[in-house]
Write a protein that binds this DNA or RNA. Structure first.
Lengths: 203, 203, 203, 203
DNA sequence: TATGAATGAGTATTCATTCAT
DNA sequence: TATGAATGAATACTCATTCAT
């Protein structure tokens, strides 16, 4: 998530907008969007409150920007990774393990996306057809591909199940994330899920 | 306000607390918890704002009460219904279709439970082990029963998948709920999900 | 201005809206509308800040309410007083002396009306045809009456001069009001103005 | 920004301070002093926000500078013009028509002077004895001259009426200025006013 | 001089909660 | 119990002003 992972100190400061978004992600994940104040975000980002308004129209816009930026990132990562394998089963496996890994590596972000974004039906309605829909369609495409190739059952409706599968994966990831004492690894989860869905889907 | 002063306490109009919870459910579902005011709830419940505080400690408590009350109801419904069938496959089918039906019949409530409640990490953490965990365990019990009876695969971890399956079902329900133009019936969803999971799980 | 001039202590508190308007008038006159805070007004009115919003939509509305209320009062006073005399010359005299007296007796109010209201062209445009226009028309009516009766010159345009005369009177009043050391009485002013205008107008 | 680096200081484009004042006049007239931002002014003046602070101490100082500069200009114009005629009646006529013309030719400036400047009691108090007083004294001098020469009535107090006459003229000008559809010309106003005051004043 | 990004103090407004009736 | 007027803490957002370049 941190684009400034290289240790070039002097040039460091990643771009103020990014710094603010990172800070906001952390703050929102910890306290929830509505319980976070702009002052909180500013403090963590080490900027003045007013500075935030130079980069984002308002508090909502900040949340939306986080969403859109990370969705772009997620979609790009997933699309790219999935392209490395051929058959739909492996693609689905890849998707599952990658999504879990992304959640694991960006826990705050994942939490914000999962929890905070849903709270506003408005957001959901607006973005269902947007970036979020794009991400869901990654799953849908895999399902359709599998169906066309005859490896997935014909009676599976990609349009219906795309979100179900995404939801199952994401829900599991979050469950794991919020679990205070990890009782199993995310890798184990990935296997369980893959096993479940593939067996459920394959002809 | 009460001109008929006789002490018919347990009268026709449902308990005021219930009226308030129903109103709150409707309001929270429409505008979101944080965008709803106590005044909004009071207006819909046709009580004075202060009255709400006679029945609930504060706004958060109102949300929690909705949650707990409905979870009790859901658990009771599901448990009872599931008891009518014997084998685990049918139980899972029942759970899936029943949960979807409950969502369909209580859309506002479902939305509040799914969306509004999650926005607070606190709630999630606190209630994972409470009523919500109880509901999740209905799924877990079905899974374990199936495993023990040898109808479900041994390599399926009930503890891991209980929330996944719940999540998949609930996510789908919400997806359907928020969909402006229903493109398919919830019954179709139930079948898809049952097909998917049973095939995925059964030996 | 104070409606609670009677000394009935217990019943005193005039009506909270009035108390707030009175306080606002004082505060706005002292510090100017834009340099006054709602907190200032609340403190002077001895109410909580939030209380102000129970009676007025917002800060602007408070200013407008002051304006409308006092215009009603002014118009009523002037109309009533003027009706007591017959010929237009006396009416004009009455108007002049009465307006000066009203300013003298309600200095804060006069200042707010004169200074604060003008600052917003919007207000002026909106109210030219409203309460303020009504007040101006008191002058216009006197002028027209005089013309019709042949006592005022025909070449005097009531529509043009109504505001001029009002302006002259009001400007003088304010000049006197803001003068730290009164060098002459308002009565002297009234006489000067009457002399000037009557001589200027009469046939 | 300046690519032609030769030191042509006093170049074509009017002094930057003037540009800023002109821009501010326009902006203040349109939106009001308190509703205008330095950013607004900077944009219209086509300078950076910071630049304004190289020429003016702060926002108030900008307003005051506009006031003082234009008062100097007004006084100079009026004084000069009035000197061209001899008798006090003509001088008063000249003053009236000239002031109206100045308003007509500098509507934004007139509005700022009349409306915006007054909103602050401070300004009024401070400037009564300053440039504004000087302008008022032009009227007073005419009145006194006329009295001394025996053409104006003795019972007219120049000190009292100077502002009244100024106020009447200015008020009328503003009335005309803010009138959306001009129903009469300013020349007509000038005649009405001259007629009124001269008849009112002359022996 | 000129810039405009950054600052952070300042404020209108909202709303959960209380309490006198 | 029930009311709803009153409270005042809390906060998003603005904007005059500064300052590193």
């Amino acid at each position: 998530m941190n684009t400034h992972s290289k240790s070039e100190k002097a040039e460091a400061k990643p771009d103020k907008a990014v710094r603010i978004k990172d800070a906001a992600t952390r703050v929102f994940a910890n306290k929830g969007f509505y319980n976070s104040t702009i002052a909180d975000v500013a403090k963590v980002a080490e900027v003045a409150e007013g500075t935030i308004y130079l980069y984002f129209k308002n508090k909502d816009d900040l949340l939306i920007s986080i969403f859109e930026g990370s969705m772009d990132f997620f979609i790009q990562q997933v699309t790219q990774e999935i392209a490395t394998v051929k058959n739909p089963e492996d693609k689905l496996k890849k998707f599952i393990s990658l999504h879990l890994r992304l959640v694991q590596e960006n826990p705050d972000l994942a939490q914000v996306l999962q929890i905070e974004l849903r709270q506003s039906t408005k957001f959901m309605k607006e973005y269902e057809g947007g970036k979020f829909g794009d991400y869901l369609n990654v799953v849908r495409n895999i399902l359709e591909e599998g169906r066309e190739q005859g490896v997935f059952r014909k009676d599976i409706e990609p349009r219906i199940l795309r979100r179900t599968i995404f939801g199952a994966v994401d829900e599991m990831a979050l469950d794991w994330l919020l679990m205070p004492k990890k009782k199993y690894t995310l890798e184990a989860c990935a296997e369980q899920l893959s096993a479940l869905f593939l067996k459920g889907i394959i002809n």
